[in-house]
Nucleic acid binder design. Structure first.
Lengths: 145, 145
DNA sequence: GTACGTGCAAAATGTTTGCATCATT
DNA sequence: AATGATGCAAACATTTTGCACGTAC
């Protein structure tokens, strides 16, 4: 198991208490928090922390490949420390984003034929940097069982 | 062929010159404009138009099912008058969103097994309202051929 | 005539930036 | 010691709102 410190060193990131706390919180939660949510989550346990640092850090983490921004339709970004390609469920009204349960995610991803992606790269002359799949759901009245 | 007027009547929307101009512009372009872009696109040909009306109208169109918001990672929303489920290419740096060429879109969509979607609905107790697939591409140095 | 849409300006929201100070290397 | 990160406040960008006026029905 790799420590956050090691991970940061590998990516040439300075190990400040704020960064480590933010990264660890992001990695520990699967709720894909907004910057604001992450701030409220981490602030209490950290000596000093400002919202600007949260934004700066998230930007740095994304550039280093340790996090990614998830696309949303309500103007505020959500972040995920899991940078692998994996589908999400986005709830329309609340804007919440969940991971799809693993077995469903697998089935969905494996159904995408690799050669289609290759053909897309060829025909559009682009390099595919990611694949974002979101199942859009109406907010369920009942919480998931 | 259905006129915008008929379409609006069917959806109980008032036919104001601004709304019709906005909808027609949105439907005519496949560039998935932001509110601001749509405003600049439509303003010149319209007697009076304010940005607030663009936002109001887009909201109304989305609620009526005549348009939809596309998720983005840069804080400003993009809109599409094509409400069918169809995959997009999103360019990382510029934020531009294109439709995938039809035959590639078909192949991608048809590869998704219908029963996986059914199972998702069953297991999460949700109603799937849409499926959003974005191929993320680094901006290509050369424009598409 | 009534209900609803519009324009304008102001406010709310989310994110970025400039700069002095502070911490990590 | 030098480089880079942080906090704060101000700037910025995008979207929403309140209200007086105008237009579609």
């Amino acid at each position: 198991m790799t420590s956050t410190r090691q991970l940061f060193n590998q990516h040439n990131l300075r190990c400040t208490s704020q960064r480590m706390a933010l990264y660890e919180a992001l990695a520990a939660h699967d709720s894909h928090p907004t910057a604001e949510e992450l701030f409220r989550l981490v602030k209490p346990g950290t000596a000093r922390l400002s919202l600007a640092t949260v934004y700066n850090t998230l930007e740095v983490l994304c550039r280093a490949g340790l996090a990614r921004k998830l696309p949303t339709t309500n103007g505020c970004c959500r972040y995920d420390a899991d940078t692998s390609i994996h589908p999400h469920v986005r709830y329309r009204e609340s804007g919440r984003i969940d991971d799809l349960p693993r077995h469903l995610a697998e089935r969905l991803l494996q159904s995408v034929p690799r050669e289609v992606l290759g053909d897309i790269e060829g025909e559009l002359s682009v390099r595919i940097a990611g694949l974002n799949i979101q199942v859009i759901a109406d907010d369920s009245p009942e919480p998931k069982t």
